[in-house]
Simulated scan of single mutants.
Amino acid sequence: MSKRFQDTARRVLRLEADAVAELIDSIDAHIDRACELMLHCSGRVIVTGMGKSGHIGDKIAATLASTGTPSFFVHPAEASHGDLGMITPDDVVLALSNSGETNEVLAILPVLKRRGIPLISITGRPESTLARQAEVHIPVTVREEACPHNLAPTSSTTAALAMGDALAIALLEARGFSAEDFALSHPGGSLGRRLLLTVDDVMHAGERLPCVSHDTPLRDALLEVSQKGLGMTAITDTDGRLAGIFTDGDLRRVLDQPQVDLRESPISAVMTAGPVVIHTGHLAAEALKVMEQKKINGLIVVDEDGRPVGALNMHDLLRAGVV
């Protein structure tokens, strides 16, 4: 029985993959016209569709919105009962219907025409009413559904979804939509955190910054490391600029040097001079990259004059969701 399941799964994936692949040869000037309408639209791209086409349309609207093209989905049945008020003459409507004869979609066409709202259609039948009524028709025709009865929308919905992605990415590239722009639409996601968080947002600053002067006795520097809980302390020179760093690792090395007086030796005698730093304003993701490359667990953040203003370690980046 399990072999039969596997064979069916492979057949479905082959049929749907073929349906998408066959779309490539259908790409023509209609795509250019559709993209131009959406690109120069001063309002929003309103996506609509009924049933399974509606589910696909909802996802296409979400993809458009997250890639720089303002868009939302309007249910065609609800549109006929008041939601048409959401659509303005500045908008463009993208309507999906495999048959091109969906009553709920066709019912709103006269209002769109009367208000001069451009219509782009995606259907499986170029001769259908919806295709003929649209300013631009994008054919998404499949030879057969993956359903053995050739009834359940499967290959056709997959192909329509892929075409929606093609339109969204074409518009993304035309707008020069960057990864940073994408992050601004996804501040709660991991990409947003990686592209928006700076070291200033994550670092320990002010009273929480472990920092001592170069002439501080080692015992007092150890107390600073312990109290601030970052496993390190910055060491400044007489001008307040960063002179070095002392970490838990440095302490272990000092303990192997019996000639070092833990009570009286100045921290400058055992610190690591010229440590790796990062400047304010840099992305937290850059700090992560530096730590991984240098195989270190913490960084001192310095200002443009080389003065320490913060510190962070790998645990801070983990808590911020950067790692």
Rank of each mutant, 00 (worst) to 15 (best):
S80R: 02
V93L: 05
R11Y: 01
P275H: 11
R4N: 06
R44A: 08
L167Y: 11
A168R: 12
V12R: 01
M1P: 13
V74I: 14
K113M: 09
P148F: 05
T123C: 09
V199A: 13
M86C: 15
L112C: 09
E264N: 14
L151F: 07
V254F: 04
Q6T: 13
I24Q: 07
S155F: 11
F73S: 08
D91M: 10
D90E: 15
V202K: 13
S71Y: 13
R11D: 06
K113H: 14
H214Q: 15
T88I: 10
E224Y: 08
R175L: 08
D239A: 12
L218V: 08
A62W: 02
M203E: 14
Q257S: 04
G310A: 02
V20T: 01
E104L: 01
P89E: 15
L242I: 02
M38C: 04
D32F: 06
A61Q: 12
P70S: 02
P153Y: 10
M271P: 03
R14P: 00
V202A: 11
R194D: 01
Q257R: 10
L167V: 15
E127F: 01
V302C: 10
A287D: 06
S190L: 09
D201A: 15
I235E: 07
H149A: 13
D32L: 11
V199P: 01
A179P: 03
R33M: 08
A152T: 13
S53N: 11
A146C: 07
T123A: 06
G306A: 15
G229P: 13
D239I: 01
N313Q: 00
P126A: 15
A29H: 13
L109Q: 03
C211I: 15
M314T: 04
G229A: 15
E78L: 06
K295Q: 14
I56L: 07
M271I: 01
G231L: 09
S128I: 02
R263I: 13
L109A: 05
T236Y: 07
L112G: 03
C147Y: 09
E180R: 13
Q227P: 00
Q293P: 00
S155Q: 08
L317W: 01
L109S: 02
A168Q: 12
V93P: 00
T141R: 11
S213G: 15
E101Q: 06
R319T: 04
G54E: 06
A168H: 14
T141K: 14
S178G: 02
D91P: 12
V309P: 12
L13W: 03
P217H: 04
D248R: 11
L312Y: 01
G206K: 06
L218Y: 04
L96S: 11
V105L: 00
T141G: 00
T67I: 05
S268N: 09
G124D: 09
N150E: 10
P187W: 02
A107H: 12
A285I: 05
A107S: 12
V12K: 00
H282A: 15
R143F: 04
L167C: 14
S226P: 11
P118N: 11
L151A: 11
A65I: 02
H204W: 01
H55K: 09
E135L: 12
M86W: 03
T129W: 03
P210V: 07
